[in-house]
C-alpha cells in the first residue's frame, strides 16, 4: 500500500484533499481458506476425465481448473457442494467423506 492512501489533510479545501478510497492488495483467497468447511471431498478420476470443462463452468467457488492431465480441484477453497460430481457427464468425480482424508 502506498503512503498516499493514508495522506490526511487537517483542513481539506476540496475533494482532492480527502483520503482516497482504500483498495487493498489482499485478494480474498489469501485470507479465507474455505476448504475447511468441507464435509465431502470431490475426487477426480483423471483416467475417466474428458476435460470438457463442465465442472469448471459450474463450480461456484472457482476451485476447479482444467489442466492437461484433467480437472484439478483446489482443496484449499472447495466447499464440497458436489455440483461438479452431479454435473459431470462421464461421472468421473466421486464425493468421498472428508473425515477419511484429514
Amino acid at each position: 500500500m502506498s503512503e498516499e492512501v493514508f495522506r490526511i489533510v487537517i483542513d481539506p479545501k476540496d475533494h482532492r484533499d480527502l483520503p482516497r478510497a482504500v483498495i487493498t492488495d489482499c485478494p480474498s483467497h489469501l485470507m479465507t481458506k474455505t476448504g475447511s468447511w468441507r464435509t465431502l471431498r470431490p475426487i477426480v478420476d483423471l483416467e475417466e476425465c474428458i476435460k470438457c470443462g463442465i465442472c469448471w463452468k459450474f463450480c461456484p467457488d472457482v476451485s476447479i481448473e482444467v489442466k492437461e492431465e484433467g480437472a484439478v480441484v483446489d482443496y484449499d477453497y472447495c466447499k464440497g457442494c458436489g455440483i461438479c460430481a452431479k454435473e459431470c457427464p462421464v461421472n468421473a468425480i466421486d464425493m468421498k467423506k472428508e473425515a477419511d482424508y484429514v
Binding site: H29, K33, P60, V62, D76, C81, G82, I83
Partner: peptide, 26 residues
C-alpha cells in the same frame, strides 16, 4: 461461450452450492 477470465476470486464466504455466487461470476 463462457469466457475464461475470472473477476471473482476464490475464498468467498458464500454457502456451499450458492446460486448467487454463480450469478455474480457469470
Amino acid at each position: 461461450k463462457v469466457p475464461e477470465m475470472e473477476l471473482m476470486n476464490k475464498g468467498t464466504t458464500a454457502c456451499p452450492g450458492c446460486g448467487a455466487a454463480h450469478a455474480m461470476r457469470y
